[in-house]
Structures are given as structure tokens and as C-alpha cells.
Computed example of a mutant assay.
Amino acid sequence: MPRILIVEDEQKIASFVRQGFSQEGFAVDLASDGIDGLHLATTSEYDLIVLDVMLPGRDGWSVLQEVRKHRPDQPVILLTALDAVSHRVKGLTAGADDYLVKPFAFSELLARVRNVLRRAPARAMEMLRLDDLEMDLLRHKASRGGKPLDLAPQEYRLLEFLLRHLGEVLTRTRLAEQVWGMNFDGDSNVVDVAIRRLRRKIDDASERKLIHTLRGVGYVLEARD
């Protein structure tokens, strides 16, 4: 499942684009300002970023420049209401893979995203591993001890995020934002329920447990002696 980040402060556009990509089989994260967008872009893995130019907190130009410092090969498409040739040239010169002017049809954005993804280099990291737990990103499969794991889409994304942050204590808030793209509600148990289900599939049949709880803090994926 391709994973895409939308950095857009206009709520109607963001919701419209998110719904469209979700229906096309993409996993979608949203950020409504440049600061949050840059944080997600540099701390999470995305197949492509759709980045608005005019953003609160930090504009798209500076976000793009910073992303390029950390991840030179990250595919990025710029969105803007600025239609001047000089602005399009500036965007492409700054390192954008494509540039789309508002207003736009979703079908055109989707076509441009697919075109950029076809040109993008394959991710260097194809396998994620911990102990006898393996995740094959290219084949979208996971296994433990050589036995396939039957994971629902959200469980797969949750496990991938845990594997990409081995040994890190991940709070419920961070998991809710990164995996579900939602603001965490302290009364919600969606994260805890998902962790329990994932733990049953990964740990219940194995003597060596990999998912650990830090009571009152969050969860960590690691192989402990």
C-alpha cells in the first residue's frame, strides 16, 4: 500500500484529496502547517509528499529545501495557487518532482502522483527485521518464525511503524497520529485495542515477546534478553 503525506492548510482541499487517495488504495497522513509537515516528512517514511506552497508556520519552499537535505530522493509534488512561470520554475529548481496549480481536478493530481511514483527509485530498505520477525515491504507480507502473519491493513501499518522505530518508546498520541492520522483522544482505546490484536498475532505463539508496554507511557518493539 503506497503511503502518502498531504501537507495542506485548506481543510476542504485536504479532506477532498485524502478521501480520493484513500479510495484509490493509498495510506494517507495529513498535516495542516509547514512545521508539522516537515516533522512528519523527516521522521516517517512516505512514498510521496504532496506539499502546498502557502502554509502557516513554515512555507512549502523551506519545507522542501529541508526535506531535500535529509532525504534527497524523496518524491515531492508541489501544490500552489501561484500560476506564474517564475513560481513553477522556482518549485522545480528547488527540487520538486512536479508542480500542480490550484484549482485542479483530483484525477490530474492522481495521474501526476502515479507518474512520479513510477519514476521514483525503489526504496533501499525492502525488509524490516527483529529477531525472527520479518516484514517484506515489496511483497507486503510479514512473518514470525517463518510463519505468515495474517494482518489487517491497520495492523500492517502499525507493525511497519514499530519496526521502523525499533527500541523507541512510542506514545499512544504518536501512534494515533502516525498510523491512523488522527488526533489522540485520551478516552479512546483504539491504539490499545490494535496493540492487543497485533500482540496476539506476533507474540502469543512465541516464547520471546517483542511488543512491550511501558505503563502510562506507551509501547516499544524490541528483543529483550
Rank of each mutant, 00 (worst) to 15 (best):
V101L: 07
P121H: 13
A194I: 07
V7Y: 06
S62P: 10
H70I: 13
R224K: 15
R139I: 11
L162P: 03
E168S: 10
L51T: 06
L92M: 15
L170I: 15
W61C: 05
V50C: 09
R88M: 14
E66P: 02
R129M: 00
F16L: 02
L198V: 11
W61V: 03
L221Q: 06
L170D: 06
Y99C: 06
G216W: 10
D97M: 10
K90G: 06
L214D: 15
L159A: 02
G57P: 00
A27R: 02
A142F: 04
L166I: 12
H212Y: 15
A111L: 05
V67E: 00
R208W: 10
K12S: 08
S62Q: 07
E177L: 11
V28Q: 01
V191L: 14
V67K: 07
P121I: 03
S188I: 04
D29Y: 01
L137H: 05
L138H: 09
S22G: 03
G60R: 07
Q154Y: 11
R68S: 12
D131P: 06
R18K: 13
E45I: 10
I202H: 01
L128F: 08
D136E: 08
P153C: 09
V101K: 06
L64Q: 13
A223Y: 14
S44Q: 15
E168A: 12
L214I: 14
S143V: 12
D204E: 09
V67G: 00
G218A: 08
S143E: 14
D73H: 14
L138V: 15
L170C: 08
T80H: 08
D83H: 12
D136P: 04
M125Q: 08
R196K: 12
L100W: 04
L110T: 02
E10S: 07
G95A: 07
K90T: 14
K209S: 15
D36I: 14
T43G: 08
E160P: 01
P153I: 03
E168M: 09
L137E: 12
L198I: 09
V190D: 06
T43F: 06
K12V: 06
R3C: 05
L162V: 09
L38T: 04
V191P: 00
Y46K: 05
F184P: 03
A84F: 11
D150H: 10
Y219H: 10
M125F: 03
N189E: 05
R114Q: 02
A223I: 08
M127E: 13
I211F: 11
H70F: 11
D185Q: 11
L100V: 07
L158N: 02
K102V: 07
F16D: 01
T213A: 12
